[in-house]
Every structure is written in C-alpha cells, then in structure tokens.
C-alpha cells in the first residue's frame, strides 16, 4: 500500500519539479518571438517574428557589455582554472601541513559567502590598495577579473579535488617510483587525469563570471558595465522584449553545449562498457 503510494509520489513531485524549472524558460523563449511590445499579449497576427533579435543586434550598449563580459569571463576562467587546480591539488594530495585548516576554510568559504559581502569587502580592499600602493588604478577589467577569480577558483578547486579523490594516490607514487621527478609526475600523470575536471572547471568559471551581477556591481567602475549589469538595469524598469531574445540566445547556447557534452560522454561511456566486456573474457 505504502509502496504504491511512494511510487506515485516521487515521480509526480519530479514531474512538477522539472516543469517548475523549465516552464518559465520556455515561456520566455516563446515570447521572444512575439511581435507585441506588451510582452504578455501574444500578437498572433504578426508572430512569430525575429524583430527583437535584430533590435538586440543593433543595441550597442548590450553588445559592448557582452564583449566586456566575454573578455572578463575568458580571463577569469583561465586564472581560476590555474589557481583552482593548484588548490584542488593541495586539498586532494598534500596531506597534512601547517595551515591546512585555514587553506581549506579559504577555499570552501567563497562557495557559500553571500555575494554582497564579498563584493563590498573586495571593493574596500581595492580602494585601500589604490590609496596605499596606487594599484589597481581605478576600477574596471582588472578589478572585475580579480574579483571573479576569487570566487570562482573555489568551484574549480572542488571539481578538481573530487576528480583526484577518484584516483589512487599510488598512481603518482608509481610514477615517482619509476624515476619520474615531481614535475614530470604532474605533467604526465596528474594533469592528464584531471584534464576533464579542469575543462569543466574552466567552463563553470566562465559561466559564473559571465553571469555575475552582485560582485560586479561593487567592483566595476564607471564605463565598465558588464552584461548582467546592463540587463539588471533594464529589467528593474520592467520586462522588455529584447531581453527575452537575449535570454533565449544565452539559454540555447548553453543547452546546445550541454547536449553536445552529454552525447560525447555517452559515447565514451559506451566504448568503456565494450572494453570491460572485452577484458572480462580474458583470464
């Protein structure tokens, strides 16, 4: 009796949950093709239309902001991937050392720290630094990039750490035992093993930066408005159809990327399964 109940409860909550996650996005995509300026009135005579997409294309403010966000996201992803990989390596492989507790605290706290606190504190630091050492002069790409790296390196570290945790430490010991120096061990064993984690960490860091509003608001200077900042200021004034178009483009880009990645992963998994069958027959 209760078995039957649960077997209905879980799938129905799941269905509701997924509908909850996707209906708003789908509605937004639909309205991006609506001709009416009144976002919620469907003008069936003249829709679907691509006019909001072309309006977007002509909006220099949005394009500039997108270009700025793109550059910062690239810089951030690369910086965060390097620092995060080092941090993940330390967390997964370095055992105990003096300051480990502090190190762990500093790498995991940014995952949950409210953005208003991080943003405000970083801005105060940048101001104080400019006062005392004259760098960073003013606020813009540099401060934005530093701020973004600071919160996104933690995500990379966690991803790299959990990937490394899946591999036995004896792999690196074996390489060392076979005569490889630490740098060789890292380049030939550790790095190839964690490469997938670094790639997904890089992509996540890119997205986090591309997406960030609150911290950017604090540390951006005049004339360095990122895309989320521009969207936010438009959205605060109300719903605007060209934002629907922009959102649709962004969602589709991500969706296509994720679908491609999933297909690739599936293919790799299938090959693996075939190999395992091959191996099973050998003894």
């Amino acid at each position: 009796m209760s078995h039957a109940r649960r077997s209905v409860l879980v799938p129905s909550v799941m269905a509701f949950g997924f509908a909850f996650l996707y209906v708003p996005i789908l509605a937004m995509i639909g309205y991006s093709f609506n001709n009416s300026r009144l976002v919620t009135v469907w003008d069936s005579a003249n829709s679907p239309t691509l006019k909001w997409y072309s309006a977007l294309w002509r909006n220099q403010q949005v394009l500039d902001a997108a270009w700025l966000s793109f550059r910062i996201a690239l810089l951030n992803a690369t910086g965060a991937a390097i620092l995060g990989t080092l941090a993940g390596l330390v967390l997964a492989r370095f055992g105990r050392f003096r300051g480990r507790t502090l190190f762990t605290a500093l790498t995991t706290a940014p995952l949950v720290m409210p953005e208003v606190i991080t943003g405000l504190s970083l801005l105060l630091l940048f101001v104080a630094m400019e006062q005392t050492i004259g760098w960073p002069a003013g606020r813009g790409v540099t401060t934005l990039t530093i701020a973004h790296i600071t919160f996104s390196l933690s995500y990379v570290a966690v991803i790299v750490q959990s990937r490394l945790a899946g591999f036995d430490l004896s792999l690196e010991e074996a390489a060392m035992d076979l005569g490889a120096r630490p740098v060789t061990v890292f380049l030939r064993i550790t790095l190839p093993l964690i490469a997938p984690a670094i790639v997904s960490g890089w992509l996540l860091a890119f997205t986090l930066s591309w997406d960030d509003l609150v911290i950017s608001q604090f540390v951006a200077g005049p004339g360095s408005s990122t895309l989320p900042m521009v969207i936010f200021s438009k959205v605060r004034l109300g719903v605007t159809p060209d934002i629907n178009a922009l959102a649709t483009l962004m969602v589709l880009t991500v969706a296509v990327g994720v679908v491609i990645a999933t297909v690739l992963l599936r293919r790799q998994e299938r090959r693996r399964e075939r190999d395992l069958r091959l191996a099973a027959g050998a003894d």
Binding site: Y22, P24, A27, M28, V235, I243, A247
Partner: peptide
Amino acid sequence: MLVILPFWTSFLLRVYAWMGLLR
C-alpha cells in the same frame, strides 16, 4: 543533466523569466 542545465544558464535571466509569468 536537466537539473544542472538551468544552473549553467543565467541566474538573472531565470529570475527575469518569472517576472513575465507573475505580473
């Protein structure tokens, strides 16, 4: 993947999407 997918899309835009539904 369906759970993670929204996680990769803009947080701001997902909130904005609700504005279109709730007004």
